[in-house]
Amino acid sequence: MHMLEVKDVHKSYGNLEVLKGISFTMEKGETKVIIGTSGTGKSTLLYCINQLNPPDKGEVWLDGEEITNPETDINKIRQKIGFVFQEFNLFNHLTALRNVSIGLEKVKGMDKEKAQERAMAELTRVGLKEQVQQYPAQLSGGQKQRVGIARALAMDPMIILFDEPTSALDPELIGDVLDVMKALAGSVAMLVVTHEMGFARNVADEIIFMEGGIIVESGPPKQMFQYPKKPRTKEFLGKISTLYGKE
C-alpha cells in the first residue's frame, strides 16, 4: 500500500480539460517536485488531491483510504494533508503564533495552552522565535511563508503540498524558505510545485514533468537532468535551468 496514490485523475473547467489522467504514488517521507509550464494544471492537481477542487474522474487514496469517496470525512483527511500557498494566505487577524495554533485548537480540539506551546515549537523550528507575536502585515514575505510552513507542520500531516512556495518572494528571501524545506525533507512527505531547480536537483527523490494535462516524464533528478527520455523534457529543463540557475 502506498501512502498516497493518485489514480487517473481528470479535471475540466467547462470545456477546458486541464488534467487528462494523472497517476503517481508517494511513500512516507518522500519528496517529489512537479515542474511544468504555466497553466498546465499543477495547482489544479494539488487542489484535486486535498479535495478543495475534487476531480471529475479518478481516485485519490491516502493512507489506505479513498478520499475521493464523498462518504469520507474530508475535514479529517485534510488535517493529514498540509498545504503551503504561493500567496501565503496567513490569517490576517491573527499573530504568527495564533496562525499556527488555531488549527490545533479549533480542528484538533487541543487546549489553548498546549496548542500555543506546540505552535511556539514549530515557529522556532522555522527560525521565527522572535516573530511569534507579529501580525502577518508586519512580516516579510519570507517570514510569512515560514509561518505558512509552520502552520502546516503543526497539524502533524503525513504530506505537505507546496504550490510554488517561493514564487511570490523577492530573490534574496527565497533561500530561507528553501532551507526550511530542505531541513524537512525525509521527516514528512512533500509534493512541491516549484521552478527552483537547485531544490529539485538536491532535495527531490523524483521529478515529475507535467505538460498538456499529463505527466510527460518522471524520474530521479539525476536521470531527468542527464538522460531525459523525451526531447520535450530536455528542452523544458534546459530552458528552466537557464532561467532559475543550476543551484
Binding site: 478543495l52 485534510r78 488535517q79 494566505n89 487577524h93 488555531i102 480542528v107
Partner: peptide
Amino acid sequence: IPSGQMIAARTLGMNRLQSIQNIILPQ
C-alpha cells in the same frame, strides 16, 4: 476578505462553519 483566507482555513481541516466563525467573521 480575500478568498485565500477561506481556502487556507479549509486546508487546515476546518469545516465551513468553523472557517466562518474563526477566520472570516473576526476579520
